[in-house]
Amino acid sequence: MEAEAARYIGAGIACLGMGGAGIGLGTIFGNYLAGALRNPSAADGQFGRLIFGFAVTEALGIFSLLIALLALFG
């Protein structure tokens, strides 16, 4: 197999990790929405934690994007 092809395949495989981040973000926002609908008055107070969870989860997705970019351009 050519090295060039292996690089692209590796980048593609690295991007699978972003799918995991996507699932995690769906869980976070879905649960936030469920909680907010049960107790709307508490929703605004928890917004900061929502963003915190979003950032931490998305950071893992960004790591896999980073690996993909490194495989492509690094």
Partner: peptide, 27 residues
């Protein structure tokens, strides 16, 4: 400085992106 600039600035860009999002929702 081959991979390091990309690594550091991608993470900084991620932080800036979160900052942008929080700014545009007014938090």
């Amino acid at each position: 400085s081959s991979p390091w600039g990309l690594i550091v600035f991608l993470l900084l860009g991620f932080a800036a992106g979160v900052l942008n999002v929080m700014r545009s929702v007014g938090k």
